[in-house]
Design a protein around this nucleic acid. Structure first.
Lengths: 229, 229
DNA sequence: CCAGAAAATTTGTAGGATGATTGGTACATC
DNA sequence: GATGTACCAATCATCCTACAAATTTTCTGG
């Protein structure tokens, strides 16, 4: 067996190290990286090499550079940027369908694995929604609603699923938030929340999945309706 | 009102153009890009700027450079590389669960939307599996099996779903292909194929989903079993 | 203290020089 | 003729210096 010629380029080595330092929270989101000159000395490479490494991570969405100011950490994961770019080429309905797939699975897994702490979190979200609904505060309702769904997915305890779901949700709502009025849906959404919560509490997989499907179906129809106008 | 300084860096502009040229099939997968010097002239930028742009796309997985040889197009989508990097940090079971979510949804959608042509494709895959099974050809069986599942997902007609599913599948099988012997599963897999095909043919959503779930459950258990050894 | 100018800092772009790797060619050898 | 070797050309990798442009910090005159 012959070993692969695995000699990575200097640029890739530096990029990898920076990525690791970000992942290990040595540099956190929002932090400013040391200026090029210092990094050059630390990594012991030329300015070109360092710049190519940094530029690769900027393109990937992890870093952000501003001329004259410096380089900042923008995100800990390159998946966000790549998914967003890719999803932009898809239609809203396609994205919605994928989100449905993920949330349905997540709801079933949440029903199986939910802890007491998950239930407490979910109840908190439900109360926030109720509060927003009483105040007719659309913005708070939407954000609480999203938080509820995210909390359901979080209870699945599958990090990959959580990451993908959050991306889908984010992209979807950046699509619709401008022209969508979901106010008439308030009572319906709250009903779903409560039923889904009960299903997860009782660890009833099938009915949890059914409620998610029901919810998505309504959301889908209202999106289709809006798009026809 | 003053417009934001929307001036993208030269590097990003060049990278974007190259990305577009790849997407528009001006440069196809496997093609060799012109050497740096020519690209410098075409884009009218400095060597550094061009190299930073190319390097960003190399890191994203779209291009591949070999010293002395040139720069080749490796993929048309950056999602592949990003997902792979991200999924590598997940466990195999997490990946499997996401794949289940996607395929279950896809099977239901396939049952609703399948065309006659989809059915023909599926039958072809089934026959290939049968053939491989008769010859005890493990490699052909696995590749035909994967092809069958991909064809089911393709019948969903949702490109985003298809892209995500293919990535999950690819990563999973690169995990297991080395040490997994699924030969004992031949009869079971073929049974599932046939039942799933019938469900899709009869446009029975529920039973299509059930068969996928059944299939995945068995695969999951056999993976868990192997990992314990 | 404060506004505005000046200086320092930092990233962006340009161009050149040298080294390393790859692919191919010509030629000698067997 | 097949094979191995030496050489050459093309191409990317790395390093260097220089200057431009944007931002932040410091200084200065009132």
């Amino acid at each position: 067996m012959i070993l692969k010629t695995n000699r990575k380029s200097l640029v890739e080595q530096v990029a990898e190290q920076i990525e690791q330092l970000i992942e290990q929270k040595h540099w956190k989101v929002g932090d400013k990286l040391p200026p090029e000159m210092e990094l050059i000395e630390e990594f012991d490479v030329s300015r070109n090499t360092l710049r190519e490494a940094v530029r690769a991570l900027v393109h990937a969405g992890l870093l952000e550079t501003k001329q004259g100011s410096g380089t900042m950490v923008r995100s800990t994961s390159a998946l966000d940027a790549a998914l967003k770019r890719h999803v932009k080429k898809s239609t809203m309905l396609e994205t919605l369908e994928v989100r449905l797939a993920l949330e349905k699975q997540a709801a079933q897994m949440a029903a199986e694995r939910r802890t007491e702490s998950d239930l407490i979190d979910l109840e908190l979200c439900i109360n926030n929604c109720k509060e927003a609904s009483a105040k007719k505060d659309l913005e708070q309702f939407i954000s609480s609603d999203i938080q509820f769904h995210k909390t359901v997915v979080a209870a699945s305890n599958n990090q990959l699923l959580i990451d993908l779901y959050e991306n889908m949700t984010e992209v979807l709502f950046s699509f619709v938030q401008d022209f969508m009025t979901i106010e008439p849906l308030f009572p319906f959404e709250q009903g779903i929340h409560l039923e889904l919560f009960k299903a997860i509490q009782k660890q009833n997989k099938e009915s949890a999945a059914a409620y998610v499907e029901n919810d998505m179906e309504v959301l889908k129809e209202s999106i289709i309706k809006i798009m026809k106008e």
